[in-house]
């Protein structure tokens, strides 16, 4: 496909994406012909049964994994066949990640974790910048703590601060509340909502209808294909749709 995108409203555009794992009888079509646009300044949730290809789709969208075929655009730039160097540069400035298992560097304090992407990009963040990033996630007083001295919810908020500190165009989140209790999950979702309201684009994979209900719209996947797209649905409606798909 050589479609030139004129529509600049999309933060991420994916065209006819295919990704297959394994061969022969072990072949799995993780993503099977997905066309999708994730609009700028909006929070899109991706739901679907376990194994429906949500994570794979997210990884391809974020340039962490190559698709077998199809094209991926980040804003105006085609990242389908970007080199490792170009992808590294993307991760430093235009893309941020949050994962279920926090993935903080255990040997570094919260402050050091947050400033890590800037340092890797060769920038010297001021103390104030790092402090600001931490206080925006409500952890101004936990800067000197190491990850293991923080609760799960706090660790995830540090991870969000780290992902946002570079001012990325898109924040990718894979089950960000998957490992959290309801209260912690709530505060993380509140935090994400606040960043979207301030203009951030978020693409979030989740299993949790309550989490998806906080997003602006929800895409449903099954067997690697987009099967539905709901906007402004309630948690109950989302849950019902998911149960239907899982049946």
């Amino acid at each position: 496909m050589t479609t030139t995108l004129t529509q600049t409203a999309a933060a991420i555009s994916m065209r006819d994406i295919h990704r297959t794992y394994g061969r022969g009888s072990a072949e799995v079509r993780a993503v099977d012909g997905v066309d999708i646009d994730f609009p700028r300044g909006s929070w899109t949730a991706v739901m679907g049964p376990s194994g429906s290809g949500k994570s794979t789709l997210l990884h391809i969208a974020a340039g962490l994994e190559h698709a077998d075929s199809g094209r991926v655009f980040l804003g105006d730039s085609d990242i389908t066949s970007s080199s490792d160097r170009q992808l590294t540069a993307l991760r430093r400035s235009r893309i941020g990640f949050v994962f279920q298992s926090f993935n903080l560097v255990g040997s570094l304090t919260a402050e050091q974790n947050v400033s890590l992407p800037l340092r890797l990009a060769g920038r010297r963040p001021s103390r104030a910048d790092v402090k600001a990033a931490l206080s925006s996630v409500g952890l101004a007083d936990r800067g000197r703590h190491r990850p293991r001295e923080l609760s799960g919810g706090q660790q995830q908020r540090v991870a969000i601060a780290r992902a946002l500190v570079t001012g990325p165009e898109v924040l990718f989140a894979d089950e960000p509340t998957g490992a959290l209790d309801t209260t912690s999950a709530h505060s993380v979702l509140d935090l994400l909502r606040a960043t979207v309201d301030a203009g951030q684009t978020i693409v979030m994979v989740t299993h949790d209808p309550a989490a998806a209900a906080r997003a602006d719209s929800t895409v449903f996947l099954r067997d690697g294909r987009v099967v539905d797209h709901l906007a402004g649905a309630s948690a109950g409606a989302l849950a019902a749709r998911l149960v239907q798909l899982e049946a």
């Binding site: 590294t88 991760r91 990640f97 560097v105 992407p117 890797l120 990009a121 570079t166």
Partner: peptide, 15 residues
């Protein structure tokens, strides 16, 4: 795993 994490948050190969 640690090294991959570094790459994930923007570390380059040479770093």
């Amino acid at each position: 795993r640690d090294l991959a994490l570094l790459r994930l948050v923007g570390g380059s190969r040479s770093q």
